[in-house]
């Protein structure tokens, strides 16, 4: 019998890590090895209840487990947040095209994340860290609304101490205890000391943040073909069939979810 493209495999919840009041990371153990490349997405289902697309936040080199960082934002994500260790989810995928790591070799990599948008970028960072000798440098700029909204609070400070890695976290609104930078992530993108025309910039966050970061990146001389944007669309099937995630002549689920700005620049209203 031919493989049924809609059939999920079982993935058991092994651990639930609270990140913020609205964000949790779920450590899943799929019933069989599960491979993905960084930037690709999966469909997670609560059996018999609902299904939604997510991009794994874990290291793609690990095949036995995958981690997915989920913000409570709607019906399915709300229900996922109620799931417990030991519960079983459905897992389909991976789908789409991820980050083209080959193109990043020998270059300065600028990674700009906003809010829970750091999730797919964490997976990318793990991939970059594992072959850091291949890249000139990795610069991370991460913005969250408040210090409480920062994800991966424990890992973040360590990343910045790695060789060739420069990380900076900023918050839109500080707090009395916050000693870091305050300001939108767009304010920490100048004077990076990089060779802009060859920089590979990767952006993931809410659409409004991506819109202004993209403008800023173009402004500092980064080329449209070197800006990689993660497009959040309503992907239902993940297979290029259901029609929900069309972006111009592309489907986010097949041709994306990672697009270069060069691919998107002539399409109207991409940030809506």
């Amino acid at each position: 019998m031919k493989k049924n493209i809609y059939q999920p495999i079982k993935a058991r919840i092994e651990q639930v890590i609270p990140e913020t009041s609205l964000i949790k990371t779920f450590v899943l153990k799929p019933e069989s090895e599960f491979s993905f490349t960084t930037g690709q997405f999966v469909e997670l289902s609560i059996p018999g209840v609902g299904e939604a697309p997510f991009t794994p936040s874990s290291d793609p080199a690990i095949k036995e487990r995958i981690e997915v960082t989920i913000m409570k934002a709607g019906r399915i994500t709300g229900l996922l947040h109620e799931m417990q260790v030991g519960d079983t989810l459905g897992l389909r995928g991976p789908y789409g095209k991820g980050y083209p790591l080959d193109k990043f070799k020998g270059k300065d990599i600028l990674i700009v994340g906003g809010g829970v948008g750091l999730a797919p970028l964490r997976s990318l960072l793990f991939s970059l860290f594992s072959r850091i000798q291949d890249y000139k440098s990795v610069i991370l700029r991460y913005g969250a609304r408040t210090p409480n909204d920062i994800v991966y609070k424990e890992a973040l400070p360590q990343w910045g101490t790695k060789d060739k890695v420069n990380a900076l976290v900023t918050v839109d609104v500080g707090s009395p205890e916050w000693q870091g930078n305050v300001g939108l992530v767009t304010t920490v993108l100048a004077d990076l000391g990089i060779d802009a025309p060859s920089v590979q910039a990767i952006v993931c966050g809410p659409p409004i943040m991506m819109k202004f970061v993209n403008l800023k990146l173009l402004d500092i001389g980064i080329k449209p073909e070197n800006i990689y944007l993660s497009m959040e669309k309503s992907m239902s099937c993940g297979l290029g069939k259901c029609g929900h995630c069309r972006v111009g002549k592309y489907y986010a689920c097949k041709d994306g979810p990672v697009f270069t700005y060069e691919q998107l620049k002539d399409i109207h209203d991409i940030w809506d």
Binding site: Y6, S45, I46, P47, G48, V49, G50, E51, G90, S236, C237, K241, C242, G243, H244
Partner: peptide, 24 residues
């Protein structure tokens, strides 16, 4: 037109993925 929505149903102890015609 071919668009559809995948949804989930639970019936008689079975978890089902349902495909329903959808429209833009």
């Amino acid at each position: 037109c071919h668009c559809f929505l995948l949804s989930e149903e639970h019936e008689n102890g079975l978890n089902k993925k349902m495909r329903t015609w959808d429209g833009c």
